[in-house]
Design a protein around this nucleic acid. Structure first.
Lengths: 98, 98
DNA sequence: TTATTAATCACTGATATTGGTGAAATATCT
DNA sequence: AGATATTTCACCAATATCAGTGATTAATAA
């Protein structure tokens, strides 16, 4: 039987506005790279559980783990509706969280 | 005395690849809107401490709080280098984290 | 259908975040 | 400079995440 593809199951990933869409984006990229959850987690330096939660859109995951995945998979995010030129940025007298 | 603007203090916000750049982006938008930290936090439904941490690039903050801010400030993120058309999305038999 | 692989869930212990308050530190204005 | 406004930080208790393991469920292949 041919696989039924329903319109509503094809979310719009052109705008990332929630943990869920971000998770879908990440999963799309990972499967595109034919990576297993385990290997991807190892590559990104996080646990499998955490990666699974991120992909499922759990909003309690941390920014650190999430950006590790974005970096590991080579996903880039760009803001829109913002004047990226101006910026009253505070001086980075800060903590090296990275 | 005129305010000295140093080149290195004008980070590139066209690419969001870390908790720090995301925090800078958020702060840029908030100040652009002339909002105080307290009011912005209230608007976004999170604590002032948390918003401050997010803006300072603390990567231990949660996705939930972060997306609340992005939504509250009307910041949109778009992925690049991804085929946003395809998508082997899992069926959303999931938990309503929102 | 059965076998195999992959993803999710439940559990544990250690550690960390959250919001609130108040104080210290910065920045802004007159 | 002095006064005011804004942000950051330390501290607290409550709660939650994290990684790891093993079991359960789901998806894929034969």
């Amino acid at each position: 039987m041919a696989k039924q593809v329903v319109q509503s199951e094809l979310p719009d990933l052109s705008a990332i506005d929630s943990a869920i869409s971000l998770g879908q984006l990440i999963r799309a990229k990972r499967t595109e790279l034919k990576m297993k959850l385990v290997d991807c987690a190892a590559l990104c330096g996080i646990g499998v559980n955490t990666l699974s939660r991120i992909e499922k859109g759990n909003c309690n995951c941390t920014l650190g783990a999430t950006f590790s995945v974005l970096k590991g998979l080579g996903i880039k995010l760009n803001p829109t509706g913002i004047s990226t030129t101006d910026t009253n940025t505070q001086k980075n007298n800060a903590t090296p969280w990275v």
